[in-house]
């Protein structure tokens, strides 16, 4: 074999294990559940192989599933808006501060490393019947009976914001850091106020980072089922909870497949739209 031929083959040898792992453990399984969603659950024994539309009729036709899907998207949207409102100024402060940026950024990255389940459950210590807020209010004599603040849609959203805010801050920070500061100086020297400079120069240039952070927050929020289980009430199920119920509790795998694919279709469409207009590069920057 010539040296050139060996050179040309080498990268493929290096790539084969990783690429085949992803193909075999992600892409083939996704194709498989697409097929599985047309099978039929039988009360006893194995699922009936065939081409049945029952699961799809139920998943797409039943108002129960549609309402929860819409509510899930609403919760994800509210979470994303709050993450943007809270995260953008923080990212701006870190990017433009004259102090120790590395420490500020490291502090904000720490929650990334703290377990998701711990961070979610920690809100029970804050808002629970004998949590910090109730204890403080009772000690101050503001209330005599603890207030029930937990286990509703608002606390689910709160938990999601707490989980996802670092993703937003990091993405916005990366894009703010990429802006040439001389552009802002130029705007100022041409007579723009600091606020005008922000609105007309900085904000538009940082929109790709905001979009990348927004996409991550939205997709991760819409795919969660743990937060509603820990911080939500019995009626606060999100769409992924329905998938979990169907697959793990009811063992209705064909229906669970159809529901999974519905979720994938909705969130996948968002990712594709994002990729079409903004490209994946910005997202990768924020993740790396």
């Amino acid at each position: 074999m010539t040296v050139e031929a060996r050179e040309a083959r080498q990268p493929w040898i290096l790539l084969t294990p990783a690429v085949s792992a992803v193909l075999l453990l992600l892409f083939v399984p996704l194709a498989f559940i697409a097929v599985y969603s047309f099978w039929l659950r039988t009360a006893t024994g194995a699922d009936q192989v065939g081409f049945y539309l029952d699961n799809w009729r139920e998943a797409l036709g039943d108002a129960f599933y549609r309402d929860i899907l819409l509510n899930t998207l609403k919760i994800a949207a509210i979470t994303t808006v709050f993450c943007a409102l809270m995260g953008y100024p923080a990212a701006y402060f870190i990017a433009r501060s004259r102090g120790n940026k590395a420490i500020l950024l490291l502090l904000l990255m720490l929650p990334f490393w703290i377990s998701y389940i711990i961070r979610t459950m920690s809100w029970i210590n804050i808002l629970g019947v004998s949590g910090a807020v109730n204890s403080a209010l009772m000690a101050l004599g503001v209330i005599t009976e603890p207030i029930q603040m937990l286990y509703n849609e608002a606390t689910v959203i709160l938990g999601l914001i707490h989980f996802l805010l670092p993703f937003m801050v990091l993405n916005v920070y990366v894009s703010l850091e990429g802006i040439d500061e001389t552009l802002e100086d130029a705007a100022c020297s041409l007579g723009a106020t600091r606020w005008q400079t922000f609105l007309e120069v900085t904000l538009p240039l940082s929109l790709p980072g905001l979009a990348a952070g927004g996409l991550l927050c939205f997709v991760l929020a819409a795919g969660t089922y743990i937060t509603p289980l820990v911080l939500g009430g019995p009626t606060d199920a999100m769409f992924a909870n329905l998938v979990f119920e169907a697959i793990i509790t009811q063992l209705n795998w064909p229906l669970g497949s159809a529901l999974s694919l519905m979720l994938l279709a909705v969130l996948g469409a968002l990712v594709l739209l994002y990729n079409r207009y903004l490209g994946m590069a910005q997202l990768m920057k924020g993740l790396g």
Binding site: V19, L26, G223, S260, L264, L267, M280
Partner: peptide, 24 residues
Amino acid sequence: ISTILIAPILVPEVVLAVGLLLFL
């Protein structure tokens, strides 16, 4: 190829979980 390798974080983890469980 990069997109393929990144795909597992672009797919919601619940969906990945269901696919892998049922296929394996």
